[in-house]
Design a binder for these strands. Structure first.
Length: 430
RNA sequence: GGACGGGUGGCCGAGUGGCUAAAGGCAGCAGACUGUAAAUCUGCCGCCCCUUGCGGGCUACGGAGGUUCGAAUCCUCCCCCGUCCA
């Protein structure tokens, strides 16, 4: 089953569209927000909770999983889905963002990026080919080319050089991916021939992996009735889609050129990278506009690393289908909670005796059950539960907002939704 | 009764004559966070003043006196705490 994207509805008043991404691990409704699970874990959130929140697509990270536990380990254990017990779709980032965020412990050259491991200081090397090799081993449904995420501000000259490098890396990433894909297909054909067997689903289906598990433990829970991983699709390059990434700093001409040259490579989807790195919001939107004008209608567009709730609507309005961001999860852990009436700093003294739910208008399990006073107490006491509950709520807020956005596009009420959200955020906390 | 050791800002705890409104930690208060080196980080944290700048005033190192140009730091007495000996 290969990757496919279809558009199912459009907003008459903007570029916004509702779509569906079909992956080997389920369909994904777009516009979609991906919770970030860098190290194969959305920090503090058990997978069943993520399923309850109806997260359909998670993001994990090549760089982190390459360092620990190592992509070979994950491959051996049946791929990232099985390893992290996540039966739904996954996207892995290539490590390009670490080129940006680990500025002080890395050097970039033509060949790739040299890192000093943030775990033990050991020298590490990530090239476009390596990034693909790791991502193929991990087996996420959507994978990304290695890119250089540029700092803001940068000169036109620097942005061009960086963009050129990103383009060369995109080409190399794609070639590596095609090599590995065809190699894997050839392998599969050969093994079928030599075994003299007709291809059977069980050959690559989870049950065969479960069989491996059975041999060592004598028991495989995967085989139990109704186990979430029971119906897990086989991992493999055949079902992976490699996305290209548009760079070009904050320069419209570079962004346009970058798109044009990426289109020649014909990726199944395109990401906008290097945005929300400290520039004014208007600039991010402008870059998004000039980029998306040049992108084909029928391919998904992914803005990497955004944003605040209102940003999500703004990007969707501009024709963006996919976004991811650490804000709802990281800020949750830091006591910064998104509500229908604006941001709540739950650690603030004013909530010490507040018996009300965090958000009166929220249908999430946390708002259903717990008081602000209790949430504040959990933060104050340094209880682990604080992180889980706060993350649960914030992710619910984000994922629910995406549902509302999709509905609004279908009903042509995206503007009203934006106004509503703006008014609510501007409104004083009750 | 005697011998030592000790009493420092909400708590713990440095500091043994000026560079000390007094290190550091905790607690407290506020803030930041955008493809996660983040359960992290930053600022404030005696009181009162122009919210102006390494600004001004006041009060502070158990208590009361004293020595000194100058004391949390030295001396005297007192109070309290701890350990040990009777």
């Amino acid at each position: 089953m290969s990757f496919r994207f279809e558009i199912v509805a459009r907003d008459p008043r903007s570029r916004a569209r509702v779509g569906r991404l079909y992956t080997a691990h389920g369909a994904v409704d777009t516009p979609v927000f991906m919770p970030v699970g860098t190290a194969a874990s959305v920090k503090s959130m058990p997978q069943p909770l993520l399923e309850q929140l109806d997260a359909q697509l998670l993001l994990a990270n090549t760089y982190h999983l390459f360092l620990r536990p190592g992509h070979e380990v994950i491959r051996e254990l049946g791929g990232l889905h099985r390893f992290m017990a996540w039966p739904r779709a996954l996207l892995t980032d290539s490590g390009g963002f670490q080129v940006f965020s680990m500025n002080s412990i890395r050097t970039v050259n033509e060949e790739g990026v040299r890192f000093r491991s943030h775990l033990d200081g050991s020298p590490q090397f990530l090239s476009p080919e390596k990034a693909i090799e790791v991502q193929v081993a991990l087996g996420a449904d959507l994978i990304m080319v290695l890119d250089e995420c540029l700092h803001y501000p940068s000169t036109h000259e620097k942005a061009r050089r960086s963009m050129e490098l990103t383009l060369r890396w995109a080409r190399r990433s794609q070639e590596a991916f095609q090599r590995m894909t065809s190699a894997a297909k050839a392998d599969k054909r050969k093994s079928r021939r030599t075994a003299g067997l007709k291809p059977r689903p069980s050959q690559t289906a989870p049950s065969s992996r479960a069989g491996i598990a059975s041999e060592s433990t004598g028991f495989s829970p995967y085989e139990s009735e109704g186990h979430p991983l029971g119906a897990l699709a086989p991992e493999g390059t055949a079902s992976q889609a490699l996305f290209g990434i548009v760079q070009g700093g904050m320069f419209a001409d570079l962004r346009r050129e970058c798109v044009a040259r990426l289109l020649e490579m014909d990726f199944p989807g395109y990401a906008l990278g290097g945005l929300a790195v400290g520039e004014p919001a208007a600039l991010s939107y402008e870059m998004t506009d000039v980029t998306i004008e040049k992108l084909p209608e029928d391919k998904p567009r992914y803005v990497m690393g955004v944003g605040y709730p209102l940003d999500l609507i703004e990007y969707v309005r501009r024709g963006v289908d996919m976004m991811d961001c650490v804000l709802p999860t990281r800020n949750a852990r830091n006591g910064y909670l998104f509500t229908s009436t604006g941001v709540v700093h739950i650690r603030n003294a004013q909530y010490a005796r507040d018996p009300r739910p965090l958000d009166q208008n929220c249908a999430c399990a946390v708002c259903w059950r717990y008081s602000r006073a209790y949430l504040r107490h959990l933060f104050n006491a340094g209880e682990i539960l604080a992180a889980t509950l706060a993350t649960h709520h914030n992710l619910h807020f984000y994922l629910d907002l995406m549902r509302r956005i999709r509905t609004a596009i279908r009903t042509g009420t995206l503007d009203q939704l934006a106004d509503q959200l703006r008014a609510a955020e501007a409104g004083q906390e009750v």
